[in-house]
Design a protein around this nucleic acid. Structure first.
Lengths: 158, 158
DNA sequence: GTCGCTGCAAAGTCTTTGCAGAGAG
DNA sequence: CTCTCTGCAAAGACTTTGCAGCGAC
């Protein structure tokens, strides 16, 4: 029974993203194309943080008929990022990774061996950040934090 | 008199960097060249976080006689980064910025209007980070935190 | 002298852009 | 129908690499 509930929640949540996206397009006289829908869907269904190239590969795999170009992926990601529906992460490595925004805020912990990224939230840190920005005279807009280390899986892998 | 003290401290500190650098080179059978020295010196004397291109410009300006190539800047920065004498920062924007490491650990607050980067430290956050990594089963190596906002100067500039 | 270093230019990545035909509204 | 999108390929930005001569040790 738990699984039905999850399924429902997930579906509803995706519908919300899709709706927001359609609204965004409408508001700007832009068009809702299959390519844009697929990109949003892939971002939603992927638990990982995707690179533009990784996203492109995934789309070619799941929707080979569309023959989506990498340029469209970049253009759509920029669009989504500008309207704050996705967030880009750029940690050290070349290129950026993207994740669907509007999820709850969270920070990242990155494994330096395998490159995997996990998420976490810590209220204490969140509130300290606000205070620090204030003290320094900044109007805080965003913040992000990363911890780098070796994940459990890579530790056992010797 | 304060200024003499500062001057002395700064000089001593630079000598330390220089020494570490020379040692590093010796340990790896690498050579101490004028270009490498100038790059270290520029990094030390700049209060800003420099891009490879910015660093290159600066060197051409201060030492036009050397005619240093951008490739050498990149090569030296990689060398310094690999040996952990400098740290690279990659926040959203394209390309990386570099800063001399081995200064005290600190985090960054970035103005989204003018792009300037300031530094700060907060012990409470530092200790929370350690705890979080532990809880998640990670062996923590590094961490970094950024706050984005509008700095005081840009706020008054309307 | 030897062997690493440098500048130059060419080659690589990753990302953006121009264009002509395709497709959404 | 109109006006935006798309794929393609070319162009850009940033970074790395190969090479022949130069210079530190």
């Amino acid at each position: 029974m738990g699984s039905l509930t999850n399924f429902t929640e997930r579906t509803v949540e995706y519908a919300k993203f899709l709706n927001d996206f359609k609204q965004l397009l409408k508001d700007n006289s832009l068009k809702f194309t299959i390519q844009r829908e697929v990109i949003l869907e892939m971002l939603y269904n992927s638990d990982e943080h995707l690179t533009p190239e990784g996203l492109h590969h995934l789309i070619q795999e799941k929707h080979p008929d569309l023959n989506t170009g990498i340029a469209t992926v970049y253009r759509t990601l920029s669009l989504l990022e500008d309207s704050e529906m996705v967030t880009s992460l750029s940690f050290g490595a070349q290129g950026k990774k993207y994740e669907l925004g509007a999820k709850d805020h969270h920070d990242h912990i990155i494994c330096t061996k395998c490159g995997s990224i996990s998420e976490f939230v810590d209220e204490e840190i969140e509130s300290r950040q606000k205070k620090i920005a204030e003290e320094l005279g900044f109007i805080m807009q965003e913040h992000s934090m990363q911890i780098y280390g070796i994940c459990k899986a890579c530790q056992t892998k010797k």
